[in-house]
Write a protein that binds this DNA or RNA. Structure first.
Length: 542
RNA sequence: GCUUACGUAGCUCAGUUGGAUAGAGCGUUACCCUCCGAAGGUAAAGGUCAUGAGUUCGACUCUCAUCGUGAGCACCA
């Protein structure tokens, strides 16, 4: 039951009955900040005033007269310039409780997506090192978004693109080989732009232990493959311990061997969008809004990064997705225009690709900014984060913030096991409810979903907040902003703590206890479902 | 210089397609456990929503300019 939509329909019907021309989607039902301004409020009278050239208060009065006929509406007040403040009948509000309890783990699901196929590609970190804090943010975002989209009725495929071919992998191979040589007592000649992380030394050590000196003349591909396998294994383990899983792992190698690159280049060539200049091959991305044409094939004959990526996106489109989502770091933002231009050049709708950019994460330790660099090995890894503060705290922390802003990750604060961490606040609300439910069971008090005795404003407000959940899911899915779920569950937890302080649940009055039990049960279900969407387990006991 | 994001309480951040008196946590101050978990609640103090203009019934929200901060501006990925 979606109370908000019911209210919207009531207002729409009323306006139609008044013979006023109004689009259904122009009607916006809001939850007023102050309870005194109603359970819901509507500003449609002010909007209609302009086209009708009438006093908005007068229009509001007419709408009020019509909607008062509905049983669901208890009271209507016209306020200020023409706000229609709607107070619902308590009985009507409480009538949805049994549905929430019945739906349980499915409560809050909506069918916004209608089975639409969406591909969410995220993380996609090169297997040339261990995942760090920045990728952790992207991993949490992509996973949360996918969970929310699925819950909102989309058919989601989570995908990781493995850059296991090209320059950076050659570099990886050389770095491992040089470290290995060093361990064998030979001179180390690390490439200038090589990988200096400690994990590279670990890999080299592994080779030394297993093969002694016998691989000193081995082909570079030996080191490349071994390195990629090892690092990919670490990445997969780190992600799964972070609660992040994928449906599809696509390797750049496979895109290349499938002939997708030749196919893409042929399409672009046939359209006359490719030309040679200064011994390099260019793509006319400027035709599609890029600020300059981009190199496809370098003078040394090798491809730029763009080429396999174009082929990869061609491959994704051909797999029949209605929408593609790419999650990039903000340091790649200039790449978006050329990627979109390339997609248009291929003949696909660039609007079907949405690129979400996540701003950088800064790490604070001891009040100082720790510079992160993938090359130096001195950065905080996703593994350290999980070990230090735990998976749930890390996931909650990332899910709190919107993607648009830079984020300061204060490791000292996150390490504190105190109420400064908002996760505890939410978990505590859930645990408190579980504790009461347990106590009720021992006392043999059962639920009563029919609310007859309880009739206070706080119960009504709490239940209305619970009903808001599906709207928040829709909105988070539509805007692709998982942090809306986190904000919501935090507010709901706050309302519950307040409710708990004011109203005793289990009293001598059995009827009242049974009814309040049902009310807090819906809160428990909602907190649990909301937390699940952001990868956090609701705990029964602190 | 250009592109892109951000600027809200002492600190970290929310702010629902433009709505009523801009919210929360932490920190500060004062209260609340004979009773379902005080890891909680109640109350107070704290704001020129970076600045200036514009759009309109109405702007933290939209537009433009200015200042400040981050990121990017490769035949790297």
């Amino acid at each position: 039951m979606n109370i908000k939509i019911n209210v919207k329909e009531i207002i729409y019907e009323a306006i139609k009955n008044l013979n006023i021309d109004c689009d259904y989607n122009d009607i916006v039902i809001e939850v007023p900040k102050l309870r005194q301004n109603g359970d819901f409020s509507c500003v449609i009278a002010m909007k209609l005033a302009k086209t009708l050239k009438q006093n908005p208060r007068q229009i509001a009065e007419e709408i009020k007269r019509k909607i008062l006929n509905y049983n669901e509406i208890e009271k209507v007040e016209i306020a200020g310039p023409g706000f229609i403040n709607i107070f619902l009948n308590n009985k009507y509000v409480f009538s949805g409780i049994s549905k929430v309890i019945e739906e349980k783990d499915n409560y809050g699901k909506v069918n916004l997506g209608n089975g639409k196929k969406v591909n969410v590609e995220f993380v996609s970190a090169n297997p040339t090192g261990i995942l760090h804090l920045g990728t952790a943010r992207g991993a949490a975002y992509g996973m949360n978004l996918s969970n929310i989209l699925s819950f909102a009725g989309f058919n989601v495929t989570k995908e990781y693109y493995i850059n296991d071919a090209g320059n950076q992998i050659n570099n990886l191979g050389m770095s491992i080989k040089e470290r290995y040589k060093g361990l064998c007592g030979l001179e180390e000649n690390m490439p200038e732009d090589g990988y200096y992380g400690t994990e590279i030394v670990e890999i080299a050590k592994g080779i030394k232990e297993k093969y002694e000196h016998s691989k000193l003349n081995a082909d570079l591909s030996f080191f490349k493959e071994l390195g990629v396998d090892f690092l990919l294994g670490v990445i997969k383990k780190d992600l799964s311990d972070f609660g992040v899983t994928f449906d599809v792992w696509t390797s750049e190698k496979s895109i290349r061997t499938k002939g997708r690159i030749e196919e893409s280049l042929e399409i672009l060539n046939d359209k006359g969008l490719v030309y040679k200049k200064d011994d390099a091959t260019f793509l006319r991305t400027t035709v599609y809004g890029d600020d300059k044409d981009r190199v496809l094939i370098k003078t040394d004959g090798s491809y730029t990064y763009l080429v396999p990526d174009i082929a990869y996106h061609l491959d994704k489109f051909d797999r029949g997705f209605d929408e593609l989502v790419d999650v990039f770091g903000a340091d790649h933002h200039s790449y978006v225009s050329r990627l979109k231009a390339s997609i248009e050049a291929l003949g696909y709708d660039k609007n079907k690709l949405e690129v979400k950019l996540l701003q950088m994460v800064k790490l604070l330790r001891g009040g100082n900014v720790v510079k992160m660099s993938k090359r130096t090995g001195g950065n905080i890894t996703i593994r350290e984060l999980i070990d230090e503060i735990g998976k749930d705290a890390a996931r909650y922390f990332f899910a709190m913030r919107s993607l648009d802003g830079q984020m300061d990750f204060d490791i000292d604060l996150a390490l504190k096991k105190t109420n400064e961490n908002p996760l505890y606040y939410v978990e505590y609300a859930h645990a408190r409810i579980c504790s009461i439910l347990k106590d009720a069971k021992q006392r043999n008090i059962s639920f009563d979903n029919e609310i007859n005795v309880v009739n206070d404003e706080d119960s009504k407000a709490l239940i209305l907040k619970v009903y808001e959940f599906s709207d928040v899911v829709s909105s988070a899915a539509l805007k692709k902003e998982p942090h809306l779920i986190t904000n919501y569950v935090y507010e709901l937890a706050g309302m519950f703590h307040n409710y708990y302080g004011k109203h005793r649940i289990l009293t001598d009055d059995v009827c009242e206890s049974q009814e309040r039990l049902s009310i807090i049960k819906t809160v428990q279900i909602t907190i649990k479902n909301a937390l699940r969407l952001i990868g956090v387990k609701a705990i029964d006991k602190m």
